[in-house]
Computed example of a mutant assay.
Amino acid sequence: MADYIHEVRQLVGHRPLILNTAAGEVLNDQQQLLLQERTDTGDWSFPGGYMEFGESFEDTCRREYLEDAGLQVEPVRLLKLFDKDFYTYPNGDQTQLITALYLVKVIGGHELDHVTNETQQVKYFDLDNLPKLFNDQSVKMAQAVIDDVEANR
Results as ranks from 00 to 15, higher is better:
1 M>A: 05
3 D>G: 14
4 Y>D: 11
5 I>V: 14
5 I>G: 04
5 I>M: 15
7 E>M: 08
8 V>Q: 07
10 Q>T: 00
10 Q>F: 00
11 L>I: 12
17 L>G: 06
17 L>D: 02
18 I>L: 14
18 I>G: 13
20 N>C: 08
21 T>K: 09
24 G>V: 01
25 E>L: 13
26 V>Y: 09
27 L>Y: 07
30 Q>K: 15
30 Q>L: 09
31 Q>P: 07
32 Q>T: 01
32 Q>I: 02
32 Q>G: 06
33 L>K: 01
35 L>K: 02
35 L>N: 07
38 R>V: 13
39 T>Y: 09
41 T>G: 11
42 G>P: 11
44 W>G: 02
51 M>A: 10
56 S>W: 03
57 F>N: 08
59 D>W: 00
61 C>T: 06
62 R>N: 06
64 E>Q: 14
65 Y>T: 11
65 Y>P: 01
66 L>A: 06
69 A>N: 02
69 A>D: 05
70 G>C: 06
74 E>P: 10
81 L>P: 01
81 L>A: 08
82 F>S: 01
85 D>Q: 15
86 F>A: 11
86 F>E: 13
86 F>P: 00
87 Y>T: 05
89 Y>E: 14
90 P>Q: 00
90 P>S: 02
97 L>Q: 09
97 L>F: 02
97 L>C: 03
99 T>V: 12
100 A>D: 05
106 V>H: 09
112 L>T: 10
113 D>T: 15
115 V>A: 03
119 T>S: 13
121 Q>P: 08
123 K>Q: 14
127 L>W: 07
127 L>D: 12
129 N>T: 03
130 L>N: 07
131 P>F: 05
135 N>T: 10
136 D>E: 11
138 S>Y: 09
143 Q>I: 12
144 A>D: 07
145 V>W: 06
147 D>M: 06
151 A>F: 02
153 R>Y: 12
